[in-house]
């Protein structure tokens, strides 16, 4: 095993080009466990801790450019207003110690369906900026996950930033685990209201081979909200709409039975979380709408 220690982004890209099998390591949450337990013996480890760009973030007009290694703790504490869904998801990642070192780049690189950031990224709308010595490109989050623990990265590419739309409305994230902290998701659900486009987006974790959106549910809800004039009148969403949305979210799952839970429980729980997160987000939207009306 060789340990590559690039001091800059350019050096990191060059190293990855020279050794495409090199395994990037930043927070170490996944890679070190595999090494400690003898599940993996990569030829090269590519340490990204010294690449400063990956630890920076920039809040722009419409979106946040989030360095791949910005720790979850920082996202929770510093980006709660701009990225509320991701901040909630970050708070459920493992333990304080791991949140202090792990970042979204690790979740994306591993592309496990259980990664906590995925549902929030899917719901918010994000693009993953990847780069190699050949150049850089932005992959829409919907096209990023290509299979079980597989993503759209080429062998010589590294994840640099994630561009996430700034929240234009309430966002929620919910995750089921068998204990109250430090737990891998049995399943998870992210939801974002986008009042500017009058759309709702979703993300489901751990209930299909890859993180997925519940597109049929989104389409149904978008239509129902439009039809009922909900975005304008700020009424409470009718229980039947919430129920059907929940059922469609369950239907978007394609889960398995494993040691963490049964497939049928995952489907059930995603439905419950979908209904609850929609209710919370919508309540918050109504509250905000009421307040801004009052101010006007």
């Amino acid at each position: 095993m060789d340990f590559l220690r690039p001091a800059s982004w350019e050096e990191a890209l060059a190293a990855k080009a020279e050794h495409p099998t090199a395994v990037p390591i930043a927070g170490g949450t996944d890679v070190m466990v595999e090494i400690n337990f003898d599940h993996r013996r990569p030829e090269y480890l590519l340490d990204l801790n010294r690449v400063g760009d990956l630890y920076e973030w920039e809040v722009g007009e419409d979106s946040v450019r989030l360095g791949a290694s910005v720790p979850y703790t920082t996202i929770m504490e510093r980006l709660r207003a701009e990225l509320p869904g991701l901040a909630l998801a970050s708070h459920t990642v493992a333990s304080p110690q791991i949140r202090n070192r792990g970042g979204v780049g690790g979740n994306l690189g591993t592309a496990s369906p259980a990664g906590d950031a995925h549902p929030a990224l899917l719901a918010a709308g994000a693009e993953v900026e990847v780069e190699s010595v050949r150049g850089s490109r932005r992959i829409p989050i919907d096209a990023f996950y290509t299979g079980v623990k597989r993503n759209a990265l080429a062998a010589d590419e590294l994840i640099k930033y994630v561009h996430i739309d700034k929240a234009d409305g309430p966002q929620q994230f919910s995750k089921v685990g068998t204990r109250n902290a430090m737990v891998i998701a049995v399943c998870a659900f992210g939801l974002a209201l986008h009042p500017s486009t009058r759309t709702v987006r979703t993300g489901i974790g751990s209930a299909a081979p890859t993180p997925v959106r519940a597109k049929a549910a989104e389409e149904f809800l978008n239509a129902a909200l439009e039809e009922g004039g909900f975005w304008d009148n700020g009424k409470i969403i009718t229980p039947s709409v919430a129920k059907q949305f929940a059922e469609l979210c369950s239907g978007a799952c394609n889960p398995i039975d494993d040691v963490r839970g049964t497939a049928s429980y995952r489907r059930h729980a995603v439905g419950v979380m979908a209904r609850r997160t929609l209710t919370w987000a919508w309540e918050s939207y109504r509250g905000t709408a009421a307040r801004s009306e009052g101010a006007a």
Binding site: F3, R5, I25, G27, G28, T29, V31, M32, V33, I35, N36, L45, D47, N49, S95, P96, Q97, I98, N100, R101
Partner: peptide, 11 residues
């Protein structure tokens, strides 16, 4: 605070 088991020595 970090888990030192998840930090590669080289890091």
């Amino acid at each position: 605070p970090v888990c030192s088991c998840l930090v590669a020595a080289g890091q």
